[in-house]
Design a protein around this nucleic acid. Structure first.
Lengths: 171, 171
DNA sequence: GAGAGATGGTTAACATGTTAAGTTTCTGCG
DNA sequence: CGCAGAAACTTAACATGTTAACCATCTCTC
């Protein structure tokens, strides 16, 4: 059959030009992606139930932890790129979950804070979120989880340690 | 100033309704995201230089490792959702990097294979990709990297149990 | 104190993530 | 045989990721 010949030809072509390449099973980005997705799969249903995406939830949490914060600083803290953040802030503001003003000393800067409505939403979501996290910690092992955190931080620093060389923490 | 009063009021409102919530520094999804992003930041420029996105690269690598593969199986292997894969395959096929046929025994199924052009592209990208990976392994430590891989796999298995209910033994 | 360049944010354009709905083909059962 | 339901994709719709371009404001210098 010509199908079989075609198959053999394809395989032969690959053998001939075989490129030395790790298998997926040894791909670090893939392993990180899979692990993260496994974790997020636990959280997404609960967030969705409250009308929040993962990123919106990150932003609300970040805002809840401070009094006010500027857009750029929020982007750094919530680990979002400017354009994504702009879109999400527009939406969250329209929904009344956050408030935004302009810095009177520097009119380029936007100053953000969470609204009472936003705080109420957090209060609604937090319990289930914490329960899910506790479940993960329990199943994986709290000590192991801490070790994993440590190793991830070290990986980040050992690779991209040249990104924010001067972060003078909280004043 | 009324600004200060407003600030105090905001803070007071938060203190009053304080929700018990981990800090970002202890967020597992965030840690995984940051680590992954740090890694991908190393690879993206090289891929981009060759006109490939991360996902397109994953697909080509997966195709290069087999003779032919069905769409659903490719989605599983390359860890992509169906809709994303459909779009990317359309593009890769238009660029002549892959070939696709219909399974004559089951006309619902699409059968994919990489083209010679696709193999050539892989051969062009692979060296720099491998070099980047080696650099990461060197900076982070090969042994530590292996340990991290192991822990990520265990994390995935320990919380994604609904995917493979027959998980014999744990860590 | 005006213009060059830097900074903070947004918009634009395209690719992917995510869920739901649609289309085609197959399978099983009466 | 005929049809209900499942399976394999695909399309649709909306949200985010990513890079580049853009606009407004500020800063610094001459």
């Amino acid at each position: 059959m010509s199908e079989i010949r075609a198959k053999v030809a394809r395989q032969a072509a690959k053998e001939a030009r075989k490129v030395p390449m790790r298998d997926f099973s040894q791909s670090l980005p893939m392993a990180l992606l899979r692990a993260r997705e496994a974790v997020m799969r636990q959280f997404r249903p609960s967030l969705r139930q409250h009308g929040l995406t993962e990123q919106q939830w990150r932003i609300l949490r970040a805002l809840a932890a401070v009094d006010v914060i500027e857009v750029t600083e929020l982007a750094r803290v919530a680990f979002l790129l400017g354009p994504s953040l702009s879109r999400i802030l527009r939406d969250l503001e329209a929904r009344g979950l956050i408030q935004r003003e302009v810095d009177s000393r520097d009119m380029r800067r936007g100053v953000l804070s969470i609204s009472t409505k936003g705080m109420k939403l957090i209060a609604q979501v937090a319990p289930s979120s914490e329960a899910i996290y506790a479940s993960i910690a329990s199943r994986y092992g709290a000590r192991k989880l801490a070790a994993l955190h440590k190793m991830l931080g070290e990986l980040e620093r050992s690779i991209g340690g040249d990104l924010d060389p001067d972060d003078s923490g909280d004043g």
